[in-house]
C-alpha cells in the first residue's frame, strides 16, 4: 500500500493544471456564463476514485490557486471546493455504484453547492450577481460529468494511479 501510494502524482497534478487552463480560457457572451466548473469536476472525480489520497488539503490548495487565477477573494474557492470534497467523500461509496445519470444528478447538486457558496462570498464582497444565471454552470457541469469521468478513469487506469 505504501509503495503504491507513491504512484502517479503527476497524473493528478496535470489533471488539475488542465482544469485551471479550461477554467480561465477566455470565453465571451453566453459561453462565459455556461462554463462548467472544471476544477470542481476533476476534484470530485479524484475524491471518489482515490478518497485516501485526494481530500481536504488538496481541495484547499487547488482552491487557493483558483482564487488567485480568478482574482477572487482568497478563500472563496477554497471554501467552496472544501465543501464539495467533504460531500463527495461522504457519498463516495454510493457514488461509485450509481449509474452515470444518477452520478450526473449528484454532480449537479454538488456544483450547485459550489456556486452558491461562491455567490455568498461574492455578495459579501459587493460583486454579487443580479440574476440567477450564476447557477447555469451547475447544469453544464452535470452535462460534462460523463466526459470528465471517462477521460480521467482512462488516464487513471492507463497510468496506474492508485
Amino acid at each position: 500500500m505504501v509503495e503504491q501510494q507513491a504512484r502517479g502524482y503527476w497524473v493528478i497534478l496535470s489533471s488539475f493544471l488542465l482544469a485551471y487552463v479550461l477554467a480561465i480560457v477566455p470565453l465571451t457572451g453566453l459561453a462565459a456564463w455556461l462554463r462548467p466548473e472544471w476544477l470542481a469536476l476533476v476534484l470530485i472525480y479524484w475524491a471518489i476514485a482515490l478518497p485516501y489520497r485526494v481530500g481536504l488539503a488538496t481541495a484547499m490548495l487547488a482552491g487557493l490557486g483558483m482564487d488567485v487565477l480568478e482574482g477572487a477573494v482568497i478563500g472563496q474557492n477554497m471554501l467552496a471546493l472544501a465543501l464539495v470534497v467533504l460531500l463527495s467523500r461522504l457519498l463516495y461509496q454510493r457514488l461509485r455504484v450509481f449509474s452515470i445519470g444518477q452520478q450526473a444528478l449528484t454532480v449537479f447538486f454538488l456544483a450547485g453547492v459550489h456556486q452558491l457558496v461562491c455567490q455568498w462570498i461574492q455578495t459579501v464582497e459587493g460583486a454579487g450577481a443580479r440574476s440567477l444565471w450564476f447557477m447555469l454552470p451547475a447544469i453544464t457541469s452535470a452535462v460534462f460529468w460523463p466526459l470528465v469521468l471517462v477521460t480521467l478513469r482512462r488516464a487513471r487506469r492507463h497510468f496506474e494511479v492508485y
Binding site: 485551471y20 490557486g65 487565477l69 482568497i74 478563500g75 472563496q76 472544501a82 462570498i121
Partner: peptide, 27 residues
C-alpha cells in the same frame, strides 16, 4: 477556521497582497 481567517484577512484588511502577487507570478 483557516478559510474564514483568510477570507476576513483578504476582504476586510487586504493583508494578502504580497502572497497573492507571488502566487500570481507562479501561475
Amino acid at each position: 477556521l483557516v478559510v474564514v481567517g483568510l477570507l476576513v484577512a483578504d476582504l476586510r484588511y487586504s493583508q494578502l497582497g504580497t502572497a497573492r502577487a507571488f502566487l500570481d507570478t507562479l501561475l
